[in-house]
Design a protein around this nucleic acid. Structure first.
Lengths: 341, 341
DNA sequence: ACGAATAACGAAAACGGTTTAGTGATTTCA
DNA sequence: TGAAATCACTAAACCGTTTTCGTTATTCGT
């Protein structure tokens, strides 16, 4: 079944059918209705490849997930973001072509496989994976894209959570409970957003006249994170509150506390950057700076679709504030002191 | 840059270039090398839409994720499965078009959006979403597909974990520690695999001469699961071991225990069907019947690729055994008895 | 050394749409 | 009321590949 069959049955030309399908003006009302009814009743769908070839657009966007951790899709951020983006795109008639990268080298091949052959009209990409090569390729191919997160190389077309603000919120929340010796457990310092989170927390401390927080960087690996936190727990003077600057590190933090028999929040208060469904159900619940992922995803799709349609989006960069979700993992530092006294 | 440009530069016809690109015989060795070098040096990639149109294949597979829970991609199974499938497909030069469904009704539209317009050559689909309509549509379109899980409607072209065996393993593991009063916390009984898991556990009990386990069905919602488990914990005679028949229900189980101040494994032993990275890091670690997701994913892709290539796969149905991962959430029932005595 | 088989290629016809240019009929306006 | 403008539509070119078919050299067997 092709457009030609429809045309014959409706006694019109292919061009007219095409115009009807695409809602292009230049077709009489009665003709349009007749063709539409025919298409409907035959459940006809135009061939996507043919459309892509003729119109030079595929109505498909690419999604390239970075490779932080073994299965990035078990992280606190990406699975939800991917879900939101996919649904948001589907609602607008856009399909999502997915690409994951296992290793650092894979990023390149994932990139190419998705860019190759004008398979997509645009892409959403994690800012952290913007190497020179990838960037060059995108620009050369003139492919619209929006980044999730900010890259040091490109300063536009991105959507990001306000990392600095979120970090401040976390640090201030801890400080407001009376904590004075804070720590930041941050991700690898190669990631662009990590330094924002670290400095945000540091600034908050300085403004309150507190000493700079001790900063530890850990890969997104529970065991390594646990080792880092152990170091923190054994250091003197004791840290009483930790800002865990990525949800993926929370489990390691809890594990370290369990192993050293420190209890949360009595011995250590925790605020996480990133929320996750299971944080609510742990005992205690984890207080978190939650990214409004739905909002971020919708914004990213909006921006990309504008670019794909050839117009400049209203806002070419968006930084969205997170919000603090208070649960049980934060208490005053006095609790531990009183207990040990 | 098109195939025509390449042809002119190499002083051959478009047909020859096409043959070279597709590795079709009928081209001299030196010509082939020359064209190949040109393609390489110009970094030429043939237009995917044009290929799709002419060759009637898109080298793309669809992936339809079911809608169990708010964000299925935070479940214990699907994110990992999706990752594996995507990477396995990428390694074979196949792209993945993703589709998610938020609601029951959405399944249909997700289905159609991905099937529409011969955008894909085949699909991997969760068996649980096979309604009559979807099935009819697939068969009508003659679209190759493989199911993840077994459907009651179609008995071939699926890959599944051995649900029954896994359940037996779980129940027997509990029984081997001396538990006699077991419970099964299962997912919604509309899902096809749920009854297999329930009956597997029941059979294991019967064979050992134990009473049938008490079975509770819960949606994949932490709070509802917790309520179910509370009921279990308060029932008499007391249940001492529970087989949590889906990873997504573990958190609810733990939450109920925490709320009623029962400790694991002293008061309640837990075995989960499905493993998850964070199970290892909880205290205690959760003993789980782990699905070999990588193996399952690879098998599914293999099978689908065979179908897409037009040949019948060697194995038209695969049931893969899970394996038991012992951690700290199981102990003998005596512990609680002794404590309370 | 000669006809037959084979190999290497070119020309051109699909594939199923979109889009441009053109045509006849109708409406608009002075 | 006649020329101009508008409208609804058709015909045909085009998008960038694959694939079929035919042609020309080349190799083969005898």
């Amino acid at each position: 079944m092709t457009i030609k069959d429809i045309a014959e049955m409706a006694h019109v030309s292919k061009g007219t059918v095409s115009r009807v399908i695409n809602g292009v003006p230049g077709v009489g009302d009665d003709t349009r209705r007749r063709v539409l009814k025919l298409i409907e009743s035959l459940d006809f769908h135009p061939n996507a490849s043919a459309r892509g070839l003729a119109a030079r657009k595929t109505n498909t966007m690419g999604f390239v997930i970075p490779h932080t951790g073994k299965y990035t899709l078990t992280s606190t951020f990406w699975p939800v973001f991917l879900t939101v983006v996919t649904q948001e795109a589907a609602a607008r008639g856009i399909n999502v072509l997915l690409s994951t990268a296992r290793s650092e080298d894979d990023v390149d091949s994932a990139f190419r496989s998705i860019l190759r052959g004008r398979r997509i009209d645009g892409a959403i990409i994690g800012a952290e994976q913007f190497g020179e090569k990838q960037l060059a390729e995108l620009l050369v191919k003139n492919l619209p894209f929006v980044m999730m997160g900010r890259s040091s190389r490109i300063s536009t077309h991105y959507v990001d959570v306000d990392n600095s603000l979120g970090a401040r919120m976390a640090a201030e929340h801890l400080a407001a409970q009376g904590h004075e010796r804070l720590a930041v457990l941050a991700g690898p310092d190669t990631l662009p957003y990590v330094s924002d989170r670290v400095s945000g927390a540091r600034d908050a401390c300085r403004e309150r006249g507190l000493p700079d927080p001790v900063v530890v960087h850990s890969p997104y690996e529970t065991l390594e994170a646990a080792r880092c936190v152990e170091g923190l727990l054994l250091s003197r003077p004791a840290v009483t509150g930790v800002f865990v600057a990525a949800g993926d590190l929370v489990l390691g933090t809890l594990r370290a506390c369990a192993e050293l028999r420190r209890s949360v929040p009595q011995d250590l208060s925790i605020v996480s950057f990133d929320d996750h469904p299971f944080f609510e159900h742990l005992a205690p619940g984890i207080t978190a700076v939650a990214q409004p992922i739905e909002e971020i995803g919708a914004a990213a799709v909006d921006m990309l679709l504008a670019l794909m349609a050839g117009r400049e989006p209203e806002r070419t960069a968006m930084v969205i504030p997170p919000r603090l979700v208070e649960r049980g993992s934060v208490a005053g530092p006095g609790v531990a002191a009183r207990t040990s006294a």
